[in-house]
Amino acid sequence: MNIQNDLVQPRHIHSKRNLWSGVLFGVGLAAFIDETIFHQLLHWHHFYDLSTTAVGLVSDGFFHAFSWFATIASLFLFADLRRRKALWLTRWWGGVLLGAGVFQLYDGLVQHKLMRIHQIRYDVDVTPYDWTWNIIAVVMIIVGSLLVWRTRRSV
């Protein structure tokens, strides 16, 4: 039994792992960018704004940890796929866009509008921000879905 030959497998065998590695990376990346830009640099909001600033900062810490856990998990999957020579970059990028887009749309619709735990900004008309946030999310979902669909035909 040759271990090296066992590691080289057709990429379609690992189709779901490629997709999930990308999805986790996309979620982690979108959360990281959101937290870094809107929470830390611009100070527009915290993950949870229905309490004190101290609670908001703690919630940002948990949110930041979540983004890194998702990113690290995705990178372990990614490294394993590379080791097995089963990395399928087109499918992986489709997963990245899907993960980031679904995360962003969930944030924009559920957390901003339904739960109202925070808004993108305060003391301004949020309508243009909401539309921009959600349209970008939908575009990422559409492009990611097309990439995943295109690779599905190759399975």
Rank of each mutant, 00 (worst) to 15 (best):
D107E: 08
K85E: 14
Q111M: 12
L41E: 12
L41A: 06
Q119V: 02
F69T: 06
R83Y: 13
G99T: 03
L77D: 10
D107M: 09
H112K: 05
A65N: 05
A30H: 12
F38K: 01
D49C: 02
T36V: 11
G108I: 02
A79V: 11
G56K: 02
T90W: 13
G28Y: 02
M115H: 01
G108L: 09
T52D: 15
D34V: 03
W68C: 06
R82F: 11
T71W: 15
H46Q: 07
I120D: 13
V102P: 04
T52A: 15
F32M: 14
H112S: 04
Q104C: 10
L97N: 09
L81G: 05
D34M: 09
F63A: 06
F69Q: 12
L41G: 03
K113S: 11
A86E: 13
H43A: 12
V55L: 15
G56R: 04
D123W: 15
Y106D: 11
F63N: 05
R116Y: 06
I37P: 06
A30Q: 10
L77G: 03
Y122E: 09
R82Y: 07
L97C: 11
L98S: 01
Q104V: 00
V110K: 08
L81N: 05
Q104L: 11
G94A: 11
Q104T: 04
W68T: 02
G108M: 07
M115K: 09
V124N: 08
G95C: 09
L114W: 13
T36W: 14
G108V: 04
A73R: 04
G101E: 02
F47N: 05
D49H: 00
A86C: 11
L87V: 01
